[in-house]
Computed example of a mutant assay.
Amino acid sequence: MAARHATPLQALLVDERFDGDIYPHEPMARHTTYRIGGPARFFVRVGSVGALTRLIAVCEEEGVPWVAVGRGSNLLVADEGYPGVVVSLGRDFRTLRVDEEAGRFYAGAGVMLSAVVQEAFRRSLAGLEFAVGTPGTVGGAIAMNAGSRDEWIGSRVVSVTTLAPGRGLVRRAGDEVAWGYRSSSLPADEVVVECELAAEKADPFYIRGKMEANLAKRKKTQPMSEPSCGSVFRNPEGGSAAALIEGLGLKGAQVGGAQVSQAHANFIVNTGEATARDVRDLIALIQGKVEEAHGVKLAPEVRFLGFE
């Protein structure tokens, strides 16, 4: 294609100075923990804030849809794929610094949350044990306030820096963000780029004990060995999605290759050949049966990408 006929996005993606790796028509099954998903028009791993800023600006200017993803641990991508740009955070977003005296972690959004948990344990810093075994990145964890009903990452955020389209970098104190159950008030069109997390010195045996107990509970109650997106539904107020689903005898229910886990009723696993449609149809089946029996409309926690 002659350069003069290229769109601004195409021109950017063939610019040798652009600090990123570009994968056209990249299967998203390679980038989700479900191992499901058709091709993204472009999958772009950006290496710096400058590259991220340029890429988003061009997408906004052209009206090309874009989305930032971490490890795809709560993502279901349509079998047809995604007609826009999927942005992944590379090199500069994968740095982790620790101020041991102050009990502070300075983590890029592309750092694995599990790496922060292990580093905290290594330095006898407590407060992040609840996140042991969590498969996502720091950025994804903050955007959705990952954690349990009793402990969540938002309570550990001292500050968070995002990239806002058209405005540049925005830094917010942790207490300026409203942290909800599996949610935060961070705008959906802003990309988390870095955060500062607080921890405190503690006995390493205490930290190890909490980590081992949390991991043992996770292994006992969750299907760790099968591809899934984690919890599919948010718990309704004062209730448990898993209990409602299990109470209706839906453990083991199957649509195509998608199955309600025998280990945990709020997990839908890919038994090997599941399509996104299988998962979506099973979600709809569960929602219908729970609403019919209990009058409760279960809200999905999983993010849908590329669906109508």
Rank of each mutant, 00 (worst) to 15 (best):
E291L: 03
L285Q: 11
A243E: 10
E301Y: 05
A284H: 08
G252K: 04
G239F: 11
H264G: 04
R280K: 13
S261A: 09
E273Y: 15
L248A: 01
P236W: 06
F267S: 03
R277E: 01
G295L: 02
A263P: 01
S240W: 11
H294I: 04
L285Y: 14
R303C: 04
D278Q: 05
S240D: 11
L250S: 02
V255K: 14
R277Q: 00
V296Q: 01
I283Y: 05
A274D: 14
G288W: 03
P300E: 13
G272L: 05
E291K: 11
R280A: 12
V255C: 12
A243R: 11
R277A: 00
G295D: 02
P300L: 01
L285C: 02
L298Y: 00
Q259G: 02
E292S: 14
A276N: 11
D278H: 13
A293R: 15
L250P: 09
S261E: 07
G257E: 13
L250I: 08
S240F: 13
Q259P: 02
G239A: 15
G272K: 07
V279I: 14
S240G: 12
A243Q: 08
V260M: 01
A242F: 10
N270W: 06
D278N: 13
Q287R: 15
P236Q: 05
G257T: 12
G249W: 09
L248I: 01
P236E: 06
G272E: 07
R280H: 10
V269Y: 02
V296Y: 00
V269L: 04
G252W: 04
L250F: 13
E301K: 08
H294C: 07
E237P: 10
V260C: 04
R303N: 10
N270C: 07
K297M: 09
I268F: 09
D278C: 07
G295K: 01
Q259R: 15
I268R: 06
I268A: 11
A284G: 06
L282P: 06
V290K: 02
Q259H: 01
K289I: 05
V302S: 06
K297A: 06
T275A: 04
D281G: 02
G272Y: 09
V269M: 03
I283L: 10
A274M: 15
E237V: 14
L298I: 00
E246V: 09
A258H: 12
T275K: 13
E292D: 14
G257Y: 12
I245V: 14
S240H: 11
A258R: 10
K289H: 13
E246H: 15
V302D: 05
T275M: 07
I245Y: 12
A253W: 02
A253K: 07
L244M: 14
N270P: 06
F267R: 03
E301P: 04
A263F: 09
V260E: 03
A243V: 00
G272D: 07
G238W: 09
G295A: 03
A274F: 14
F267K: 07
E246W: 12
I245L: 14
G252S: 08
G249P: 07
I286E: 01
R277W: 00
L250M: 15
T271K: 15
P236D: 07
E292I: 00
I245S: 14
A241H: 00
G247L: 07
G252A: 08
K289W: 10
G247Y: 12
G256E: 13
L282N: 03
L248H: 03
E237T: 13
E273Q: 15
G272Q: 08
I283W: 06
A274T: 12
